[in-house]
Structure formats: C-alpha cells, structure tokens
Simulated assay, not measured.
Amino acid sequence: MDHWIFGDIMCKRTSYVHSVSTSVSIYSLVLTAVERYQLIVNPRGWKRSVAHAYWGITLIWLFSLLLSIPFFLSYHLTHEPFQNLSLLTDLYTQQVACVENWPSKMNWLLFTTSLFMLQYCLPLSFTLICYLKTVICLRRRNGKVDKRRESESWVRENKRINTMLISTVVTFGVC
C-alpha cells in the first residue's frame, strides 16, 4: 500500500513493538551466552535457578521496553509525502503516511547510533567474549582428556559444542 490506513496508535505501536521484539531476541541470546559460559566454565560455582531465569527475562523485557520508547514518540501520521505529488488527485488528498519525525537531525543520529551500539555492537561483543572463553575452556579440557586418552565421544561432543557456539555468534553478526 502507498498510504497508512491503520491510524495513529498503530503507527506508533508498530515500530515500537518491532524494536521491543528485536531487543528481547538479542538480549535473550546474550543471556543464553552467559548461562552457557557459566555452565561450562564454572559448573560447580554457579547454580541455575528459576528465580535467576525470571529476573533475567524481566530485566530483558524492561530494558527493551524502555530502549524502544523513542520509536513510539517519533512515529506520526502525516500528509507530507502526498503534498509534493505532481499529479495530485482526489485519491491522495486525504491519505496519510506513517513516518519517523525527529525534532532534529542530531537527535535522530544520536538515537540511531545508540540503538546500533545497544542492539548490535555491545551484545555481539559480549556474546563473542562469552563464547570465546567457553571455547578456550573446552579446548583446555580437551587437552587434558587427550593426555589421559579418555573417550573420544567427549572430544567429539566438545567440538560439536564449539561449532555451535561459533555458528551462533557468526549468524547473529551476519543477521
């Protein structure tokens, strides 16, 4: 469609919900990386609990809801895109579009840069560090296993885990 028909509230909600769901997905991946790191690197010193899971999920949602508020505030309905049409017909005189409208270019640039850092750079870096430390820990264990000539299934399992961890980070980075 070339115009917006769902009203002002849906205009604001659509971008807001999109940003919230993106942030929740990203920070859930980070929480998973932290949990895997703790389970593999520090299996005896860290105990998983349902309360930890609830706290982690609650914090992820609260942070995501707050981080996305500028989207809710910046999207508006406007006639502006249809005012510059050379063949303005009756069909477009009452049409509106849902567009992002910031008080200044600097505000938009600051928010966009902050969002890029908070939704991509920091989570990717944090996840990469967690998984890198996990891979290093598993390699050290593999060296000990190789020295003792214990089961090859343990070595294969660690290689499979390493491949999964690396592919998770690469997929996140690419997507």
Results as ranks from 00 to 15, higher is better:
Met1Gly: 14
Asp2Val: 02
His3Glu: 01
Ile5Val: 15
Gly7Arg: 08
Asp8Asn: 12
Ser15Ile: 09
Val17Ala: 12
Val17Leu: 15
Val20Arg: 06
Val20Lys: 06
Ser23Gln: 00
Val24Ser: 04
Ser25Tyr: 14
Tyr27Ser: 00
Tyr27Glu: 03
Tyr27Arg: 01
Leu29Arg: 09
Val30Tyr: 12
Leu31Ser: 14
Ala33Trp: 07
Glu35Gln: 11
Tyr37Ser: 00
Gln38Asp: 04
Gln38Asn: 10
Leu39Pro: 01
Ile40Met: 06
Val41Cys: 15
Val41Asn: 09
Asn42Ser: 09
Gly45Cys: 02
Trp46Phe: 11
Lys47Arg: 11
Arg48Met: 07
Arg48Lys: 11
Ser49His: 02
Ala51Gln: 00
Trp55Asn: 05
Ile57Ser: 12
Thr58Ala: 13
Thr58Trp: 03
Thr58Tyr: 05
Ile60Ser: 10
Ile60Glu: 00
Leu62Ser: 10
Leu62Pro: 00
Phe63Ser: 06
Leu65Phe: 11
Leu67Asp: 12
Ser68Val: 08
Phe71Ala: 03
Phe72Asp: 05
Leu73Ile: 01
Tyr75Cys: 03
His76Leu: 07
Gln83Arg: 12
Leu85Glu: 13
Leu88Asp: 06
Thr89Asp: 05
Thr89Ile: 02
Ala97His: 11
Ala97Asp: 13
Trp102Gly: 10
Pro103Met: 04
Pro103Glu: 13
Pro103Ala: 12
Lys105Leu: 05
Met106Ile: 14
Leu109Tyr: 10
Leu109Ser: 13
Leu110Ala: 03
Ser114Gly: 15
Leu115Val: 06
Gln119Met: 08
Phe126Ile: 15
Phe126Thr: 15
Leu132Thr: 13
Ile136Asn: 00
Ile136His: 03
Ile136Pro: 01
Leu138Trp: 04
Leu138Gln: 10
Arg139Pro: 02
Arg140Asp: 09
Arg141Lys: 15
Arg141Leu: 15
Arg141Ala: 14
Lys144Asn: 08
Val145Ala: 12
Arg148Glu: 07
Glu150Asn: 07
Ser153Thr: 08
Arg156Asp: 08
Glu157His: 05
Asn158Thr: 03
Asn158Gln: 06
Asn162Cys: 10
Thr163Asn: 13
Met164Lys: 06
Met164Thr: 07
Met164Arg: 08
Leu165Thr: 01
Ile166Gly: 05
Val169Asp: 04
Val169Leu: 00
Phe172Glu: 07
Cys175Tyr: 12
